[in-house]
C-alpha cells in the first residue's frame, strides 16, 4: 500500500492554494479594513456590504457560486478551477481579516495619535509611522490563526475538481475501502505538519504583539 506517496501528490495543490488564497486574503483585509475607516460614507458602506455578505454566508456556497452559478448567469468563466478556489477562499477570509485590521487600528491608544500630532505629524504620517506599525503587531496572532483556518479550508477545493491532498485520499478510499482509516490518518498527519509552521508563526506573532503596541 502506497498511501503516503499517493496522498503526497496532492501537496502541490494544497500548498499553492494555501499560499495564494492567504496572500489574496491579506491584501483584501488591508484594503477593506482601511476602507472601513475611511471618511467617505460610500466607501465605508460598500465595504460593509462585502464584509457582511462573505462573513454571513458559507464558504462552500460561495465556492459553488463562483464555480457553477456565475458562469451560468453571466456567461463568464472566472478562470481555472485553481483560481476559482483561490478567489473564493481569499474573498471569504479577506472579509474576516478586514475586521481584524480595522479593530487593531482602532485599538491603538488615542494618546499615540495625540503625541504624533504634538510632533506636528500629518494624518498620513500618524497612520504610517505610528498607528499602523503598532496595529500590525496586534494583528499578527489573529493573522496566524486565520491562516491555519485557511489551510483547513483548502480541502474544499476537492469539491470543484482540484487534485489536492483530500482528493487523492478519496480516490484511494473509493478503490480500496479497507484502507479508509489509514488514508484519513495520513491526511490528518499531512495537514498537521503543514499547520506546524503556521502554529509556530502564530506563537511568534503573539510574542511580538505583546511588547510592541500601546493599546487602550
Amino acid at each position: 500500500m502506497e498511501v503516503i506517496p499517493q496522498v503526497a501528490k496532492g501537496l502541490q495543490v494544497t500548498i499553492t492554494v494555501l499560499l495564494a488564497s492567504a496572500l489574496l486574503a491579506y491584501l483584501l483585509a488591508f484594503v477593506a479594513g482601511l476602507s472601513k475607516l475611511s471618511n467617505n460614507v460610500l466607501i465605508r458602506k460598500a465595504t460593509g456590504v462585502y464584509v457582511e455578505i462573505f462573513r454571513g454566508t458559507s464558504l462552500i456556497v460561495q465556492l459553488f457560486w463562483l464555480y457553477y452559478a456565475i458562469p451560468m448567469l453571466f456567461g463568464i468563466q472566472l478562470g481555472t478551477n485553481w483560481w476559482i478556489g483561490v478567489i473564493a477562499i481569499g474573498l471569504n477570509y479577506g472579509a474576516y481579516l478586514s475586521e481584524v485590521v480595522r479593530s487593531s487600528i482602532v485599538a491603538v491608544d488615542k494618546g499615540q495619535s495625540e503625541a504624533a500630532t504634538a510632533l506636528n505629524m500629518s494624518s498620513f504620517q500618524r497612520m504610517r509611522l505610528i498607528i499602523f506599525p503598532q496595529a500590525v503587531r496586534m494583528m499578527l496572532p489573529e493573522f496566524g490563526n486565520y491562516t491555519i483556518l485557511i489551510l483547513k479550508s483548502t480541502s474544499l477545493v476537492s469539491l470543484i475538481g482540484l487534485h489536492d491532498v483530500l482528493y487523492y485520499g478519496d480516490i484511494i478510499r473509493s478503490t480500496n475501502a479497507s484502507a479508509t482509516p489509514i488514508v484519513y490518518g495520513v491526511i490528518l498527519v499531512f495537514y498537521f505538519i503543514l499547520a506546524l509552521p503556521l502554529i509556530w508563526m502564530t506563537r511568534k506573532g503573539e510574542a511580538i504583539a505583546k511588547k510592541g503596541a500601546a493599546s487602550s
Partner: peptide
Amino acid sequence: DIGMVFQHFNLFPH
C-alpha cells in the same frame, strides 16, 4: 512651534 508632554508619556512603544 508648539510641543507637548503628556501625563501618560505616550512614547511610541515600537
